[in-house]
Simulated assay, not measured.
Amino acid sequence: MEITGAVVEWRFRSPHAFLSLEVTEQDGSVERWAIDGSSVPTLRRQGLDQNSFAPGDVVTVFGQPSRDPNTRLAFAQTFVTADGRTLGERLALDEGVRLESDVQGVKRLEGRWQGLGMGASFRSDGESPLPLSAAGREAWESYDDELSPASTCEPINTPALLHAPNFLFDVRISDEEATLYHEIYEVTRTVPLDSAPRQAEPSGIFGFVRGRVEGEELVVESSRFPPSLWGLAVAAIPPGNGGDVPSSAEKRVTERYSARDGGQTLRVEYTVEDPVYLTEPYTGYRDFARVSDDTPLHPYGCDAVSASRFSERE
C-alpha cells in the first residue's frame, strides 16, 4: 500500500522504528497513521538515522497494512521524501571479500557475516515443521502474541538467533575460546574450547556452552538453558510458522560451523533437543556470506516501548 502524509513524530529505535503521519483522506478528513519500520541496525545500513524525518515533512510510505482493517497501522518497506529520495531499500553489502591464501583450518570461520535467505521454510499447509510433543503442540496452537517475549525485549534464543534477517554475525576464534557476536539484541556468546562448560553470557538465558575444533569445523554445545516462552521457535522466524514454541530446562543445542566456497560462505548446522516439547531432535541450518571486517556493527538498543507494541502490528 501507499500512504502520503505529514510527519508528526519519528522515533528511531529497535526493535521497530516508529513514524506518525497525518494523512488527508479523499473526503478531506485527517487520519493519524502509525507506521512501523525496521530496527536501528537495518535502517542505518539503509541510510536512515534519528534525523531522517522532522515534524511537517511530507513523506510517502510504501509498505504492508495491518491485517486489522479497522486500524491505521502499517509496516514500512520504503520511504520517499518530498524531494524524491527513496530511503529504506535493502543495500547490498560487499560480499566479494576474499581470504588471504594462508588462512587455513578453523581460522577460515573467522570474520563478519551476513545471513543468506532465512535458511529454513514455513510449511505451506500452516502446520508447524517441528516434531512437537503434546505439550509443544498445545503451546504452539494456543500462541498469544500479547504474551510473547517479543513484547518485553527478551532476546530470541538459539537457534532462532541464527535466522534473524538483515543482521550481521561476527565470529572470532583463539586457542582458548570462540566469540560469537549477534548484532540482533547485541548478544555475545563466549565459548570455551576443550574445557568445562561455562555460562555463555552474563544474563544466563543462553545456557552453558563449551566448544571444540574438529578438523576445520567448530562445534558448539549448549545446555542448562532456563525455560523460555520462545526457546525453540519464534512466531515470525522459521521454523516457528506463526507461533512461539517454548523450551524447557532440558533443551540442548549443538551447532557445527563450517566454511564453504573457499571461505566465502559460512554454514551453521544445528540440532535441537527438548524431550518436554519435542518428540525427537530437529535439525536445521543457516548460510552466511562473508562481508568486509570493516562493515560497521550497529548497536541494537531494544526499546521497551517499541517492543510493547509488538502485538499491535498484527
Rank of each mutant, 00 (worst) to 15 (best):
M1V: 09
E2Q: 14
T4Q: 11
V7G: 05
R11I: 07
R11Q: 11
P15V: 02
H16Q: 06
H16T: 02
L19I: 01
S20F: 03
E22H: 09
Q26Y: 00
S29D: 11
A34Q: 07
D36E: 11
G37P: 03
S38K: 08
S38A: 11
S39M: 09
T42F: 02
D49I: 02
D49T: 03
N51W: 07
S52I: 04
A54R: 15
D57V: 07
V61M: 08
F62Q: 14
S66L: 00
R72I: 02
R72D: 02
F75T: 11
T78H: 03
F79W: 15
V80E: 13
A82G: 02
A92I: 08
A92N: 11
E95L: 00
G96Y: 02
G96D: 15
D102S: 13
Q104P: 00
E110P: 00
G115C: 00
M118F: 12
S124P: 04
E127Q: 14
L130I: 04
S133L: 05
A134K: 13
A139E: 10
A139S: 14
W140Q: 01
D144A: 12
T152H: 12
C153F: 07
E154K: 09
E154W: 08
I156N: 07
H163P: 04
A164K: 03
L168T: 03
R172C: 00
I173E: 09
D175A: 15
E177Y: 03
L180Q: 00
Y181F: 15
H182V: 08
H182M: 03
I184D: 06
V187Q: 14
Q199Y: 05
E201Q: 14
S203L: 06
S203W: 00
G207P: 02
L218R: 06
V220E: 10
S223M: 14
F225P: 02
P226I: 08
P227I: 09
A236S: 14
I237R: 02
I237H: 05
P238Q: 14
N241Y: 01
D244Q: 11
S247H: 12
E250S: 12
E250K: 10
K251T: 01
E255Q: 13
G263K: 00
G263A: 06
E269W: 01
T271E: 15
V272Y: 01
D274H: 03
V276K: 08
Y282F: 15
T283Q: 10
G284W: 07
S292L: 07
D294W: 09
L297S: 07
H298C: 00
Y300C: 04
G301D: 14
V305M: 12
S306K: 03
S308E: 13
E314R: 13
